[in-house]
Design a protein around this nucleic acid. Structure first.
Lengths: 205, 205
DNA sequence: TAGATTGTTAATCGATTAACAATC
DNA sequence: TAGATTGTTAATCGATTAACAATC
């Protein structure tokens, strides 16, 4: 029997819930309610309960949710109760910043490799990583069984890199290059482009 | 008479359309159709036409859209037919990468200032900017009339920084710290957290 | 017990798509 | 003229909210 299909928009909110719960834990809180969580996030309590109910029953009537337990359940649903190795492609400003980023710790992600095509950069250090030659990307990614990658190359190389990642077995790509990628439909892509976010706000100014 | 209210989700797609149009211009294309644009972006042609029709009539039956003209119109709608000065708060890896980012050019944005609280960083150079002392942030932002800012500080300072930005007159904040910000409802906030995007994909792996 | 909050159903609201007359 | 594609309407689809019985 196939699992019920969960709307993508619901899946997309789970990481937001998880981040807020982890923040509450850091504040030494133990219990919360859909109402409190909703107020913090600007989301209705009903929506939070509805979202969570797609996956199971995690709360107690009259009491609310154990923060620790709910966080654990969401981590399991999102498959971040394990650590995913990440390959970063492009060792420029953005690639380097992301490779050194401390924010992956305890959130199910860790950078494992970083690549560049510039011979002057290959072999140099970025944080604790040695920059690898992009010529070796397919074999290296296959060797390590990496499934998640980030593209931080110039736009005009992003599609070519994406093709290589896909043929190396990568199934999830976070793309910092400001361009849309074409990938097979079983490969997921997410985009980060600060200008898109900024332009979305200037409309209202 | 008040303008018709445009759904936020429609406004959010305009920057995506604009980016694709600018890409087509770079490819020396002159005319496109809702169908072609939709195929590139993975959006239905009907939706693109519907979105655009909220703002006016930009196409020609039988022919499609002049890429140059449509891009110009969208830039006008989004108010990026002007250049917005941006203040970057935090001169760590992410703040520095963003301050040096080349991708703002021709997209209506330019970094103008960068701040840090670390005395060892204040006064040093990041790209073509000299890092300013965060103690002066309110007066400096007011002086330059800056309305758009990016937060790239550690999480535990982000809310405090946001409060200062708001009282200095900033109306749009792009937050790289992995934490939700509370701001007055007339101030817009957008979030960039790579982990959120990554966790959204691991669900499907 | 009284109060609080869940999980769920039904109603509402909003967004997307299909279809087509208008027209370039 | 024939073919193509827009702008728009109506139909469909999906997401959000309100309300409440269940129950801790």
């Amino acid at each position: 029997m196939a699992d019920k299909i969960i709307p993508d928009i619901v899946v997309g909110r789970l990481p937001i819930y998880l981040r807020a719960l982890q923040r509450m834990l850091a504040e030494n809180r133990h219990v919360t309610s859909s109402q409190e969580l909703g107020e913090r996030l600007g989301i209705s309590a009903a929506q939070i309960r509805k979202d969570l109910s797609q996956f199971g029953e995690f709360g107690k009537q009259g009491t609310g949710y154990s923060i620790d337990y709910l966080a654990e359940q969401i981590r399991h649903i999102l498959k971040v109760d394990q650590v995913w190795d990440i390959a970063v492609v492009g060792a420029g400003d953005i690639g380097s910043a992301v490779a050194r980023y401390q924010g992956f710790a305890n959130r199910g992600m860790q950078v494992k490799q970083i690549y560049d095509s510039d011979p002057a950069k290959v072999g140099t250090d970025v944080g604790s990583f040695k920059v690898k030659d992009i010529a070796d990307i397919e074999s290296e990614i296959k060797k390590d069984g990496i499934k998640v990658a980030m593209i931080a190359t110039p736009s005009d190389h992003a599609q070519e890199v994406a093709d290589q990642l896909v043929s190396a077995g990568v199934m999830a790509i976070l793309n910092y290059a400001p361009i849309n990628l074409n990938v097979p439909e079983n490969v997921r892509v997410q985009y980060i482009d600060p200008v898109i976010h900024l332009q979305r706000m200037t409309y209202y100014l």
